[in-house]
């Protein structure tokens, strides 16, 4: 068993080096932000690059989720616990961004629902949910 772990040791070291590079000296939190950016760009790319309307909505969701993460990360304090008033708790995360993001999640759900509802209607009207096919039809109509 240990053999297998050791086999991955170089990879693990590489990862640690990468993490150290990303995080930078002395500040523990930046790694999360890099992840946020990766997610954000993934979502953004899907929205732009995919022709399938449902996939666009999925991309939009990924994009929004990255922002939720972003808010949650900024509230996190190293060693802090949940912000509940109790004996002996001195360090706790900032609750305000959590609350804010609850609102944003609700908004995101509503947007997704509405977007998917529109996709259903578009499918009924055009018989397709591929954006390029729809655009071809529309250009025909404009002529």
């Amino acid at each position: 068993m240990q053999g297998i772990v050791d086999a991955f040791k170089p990879l693990h070291d590489l990862w640690l080096a990468f993490e150290a590079f990303m995080v930078g000296p002395g500040s523990p939190g930046l790694f999360g932000y890099w992840m946020v950016i990766a997610l954000m760009m993934t979502g953004f790319y899907v929205v732009i690059a995919h022709d399938n309307l449902v996939k666009k909505i999925v991309g939009l969701n990924v994009f929004q989720v990255s922002v939720f993460l972003f808010y949650i990360l900024m509230a996190k304090i190293t060693g802090g616990t949940a912000p509940i008033l109790a004996e002996g708790i001195k360090v706790y995360s900032n609750p305000l961004p959590h609350v804010l993001i609850l609102t944003a999640i609700v908004v995101g759900v509503a947007t997704t629902a509405l977007g998917l509802a529109l996709v259903v209607r578009i499918r009924n009207a055009y018989d397709t949910i591929e954006d390029d096919e729809i655009q071809a039809v529309e250009e025909e109509e404009d002529r």
Partner: peptide
């Protein structure tokens, strides 16, 4: 039926815009 696609595209762009806005607000915060 064009209204549906127009609305859909507005939804995508509008959501992107609003999300950009809260990213900015988050950074200010």
């Amino acid at each position: 039926r064009r209204a549906l696609t127009a609305s859909y595209r507005y939804l995508v762009m509008g959501t992107l815009g609003a999300t950009f806005y809260i990213i900015g607000v988050g950074m200010m915060y």
